[in-house]
Simulated scan of single mutants.
Amino acid sequence: MTDTAPSASKRGPYARSRVRREQISDAVLRLVDAQGHEGVTTALVAKESGVPEPSVLYHFPTKDHLLVGAMERADDLSADDSGAEGDDSHLDPEDLRRALQPGPVGDRRVRLYLMLKGQAATPDHPAGAYLRARTERSVRIFSRLVARRQHEGLAHPGLDPDQVALQITALMDGVALMRMTNSDLDAGALVADGVRRLVGENWMRARALLDAPDVGL
């Protein structure tokens, strides 16, 4: 009979480690949401999470790793909430517009994200690997959504979904930066309109009207 104990014991510690990392990252997010990323310390994270400081440092050896871990957690939670990686997800510009409404919590996370983008070029900084993975994930999600919108007749059939997905990702990053320096900017409206233009939605709707049979003539 095959002994399965080693496999089970391997899964156990891994699962506990993942739960502990999420517990710590959730605490960092709460601190960022409450006061911004600048004042986050390992001592505060330990107090907020209920995890001893040496254990915090075991999972995240520096403050930079803590902040990157928090953004990774925020991305996962956002993807879960929006269902963006689900099989039945859709690319709705109005959903993007609503998601980008301004607010103190969202802006603090955006400031953290932009700070990490500034650090990404520093050799061996954890932000570099995080941002590469984040961009790849974003492009993968949007590429699938653009292809689905093409199938629905709401995106130009001649577009390359991967290229459009990269353009949407760049658009959202650029608008996030602009919003930090222009509080009057309607970021949601700008992104929603930009996505419609990038996928050729207005062109597709106009074509559908032209192709529709005349009614009442």
Score class of each variant (00 low, 15 high):
residue 82 S to P: 02
residue 59 H to Y: 03
residue 74 A to E: 10
residue 57 L to C: 00
residue 128 G to S: 13
residue 158 G to Y: 04
residue 143 S to I: 05
residue 61 P to E: 00
residue 88 D to E: 15
residue 152 E to C: 09
residue 97 R to A: 03
residue 132 R to Q: 10
residue 120 A to V: 05
residue 55 S to L: 05
residue 87 D to M: 12
residue 92 D to R: 02
residue 98 R to D: 09
residue 94 E to P: 00
residue 108 R to A: 12
residue 76 D to N: 08
residue 113 Y to N: 14
residue 64 D to P: 03
residue 143 S to F: 08
residue 100 L to A: 14
residue 80 D to C: 02
residue 123 P to H: 03
residue 117 K to R: 15
residue 125 H to R: 09
residue 145 L to A: 07
residue 133 A to Y: 03
residue 161 P to C: 09
residue 133 A to R: 08
residue 58 Y to G: 00
residue 81 D to Q: 12
residue 78 S to C: 13
residue 109 R to H: 15
residue 141 I to A: 12
residue 127 A to T: 06
residue 87 D to T: 11
residue 123 P to F: 04
residue 98 R to Y: 06
residue 56 V to H: 00
residue 133 A to S: 11
residue 70 A to M: 06
residue 71 M to Y: 05
residue 127 A to V: 08
residue 157 P to E: 04
residue 91 L to S: 00
residue 102 P to N: 11
residue 166 L to V: 09
residue 108 R to E: 10
residue 88 D to I: 06
residue 149 R to N: 10
residue 74 A to H: 07
residue 108 R to F: 12
residue 83 G to I: 07
residue 121 A to G: 12
residue 92 D to H: 03
residue 59 H to N: 05
residue 101 Q to K: 15
residue 126 P to E: 02
residue 95 D to V: 05
residue 112 L to R: 12
residue 157 P to K: 05
residue 67 L to G: 01
residue 92 D to E: 05
residue 125 H to A: 08
residue 95 D to T: 04
residue 104 P to Q: 14
residue 121 A to P: 07
residue 154 L to G: 07
residue 90 H to N: 08
residue 124 D to N: 05
residue 158 G to V: 03
residue 133 A to L: 05
residue 75 D to I: 07
residue 144 R to I: 04
residue 89 S to E: 09
residue 68 V to P: 01
residue 84 A to Q: 09
residue 110 V to E: 15
residue 105 V to S: 12
residue 146 V to K: 04
residue 80 D to G: 05
residue 122 T to C: 10
residue 81 D to N: 11
residue 61 P to C: 00
residue 163 Q to F: 14
residue 114 L to S: 14
residue 149 R to T: 14
residue 64 D to F: 00
residue 72 E to P: 01
residue 91 L to H: 01
residue 110 V to W: 12
residue 90 H to D: 13
residue 120 A to M: 13
residue 120 A to I: 09
residue 68 V to C: 03
residue 113 Y to K: 12
residue 67 L to E: 00
residue 160 D to A: 12
residue 66 L to G: 01
residue 96 L to M: 09
residue 143 S to Q: 09
residue 124 D to L: 06
residue 74 A to T: 05
residue 109 R to E: 11
residue 60 F to Q: 00
residue 160 D to T: 07
residue 79 A to F: 07
residue 132 R to K: 10
residue 66 L to K: 01
residue 103 G to C: 10
residue 118 G to C: 13
residue 117 K to T: 13
residue 140 R to G: 09
residue 82 S to K: 04
residue 94 E to R: 00
residue 68 V to Y: 01
residue 110 V to Y: 13
residue 74 A to C: 04
residue 131 L to K: 04
residue 145 L to C: 07
residue 121 A to F: 10
residue 71 M to W: 04
residue 86 G to H: 14
residue 165 A to R: 02
residue 113 Y to Q: 15
residue 121 A to I: 08
residue 58 Y to H: 08
residue 115 M to C: 06
residue 60 F to I: 00
residue 63 K to W: 02
residue 138 S to R: 12
residue 67 L to I: 02
residue 112 L to I: 11
residue 161 P to H: 10
residue 126 P to F: 01
residue 79 A to S: 13
residue 99 A to W: 11
residue 87 D to K: 14
residue 124 D to T: 10
residue 56 V to D: 01
residue 72 E to W: 04
residue 144 R to F: 06
residue 66 L to M: 01
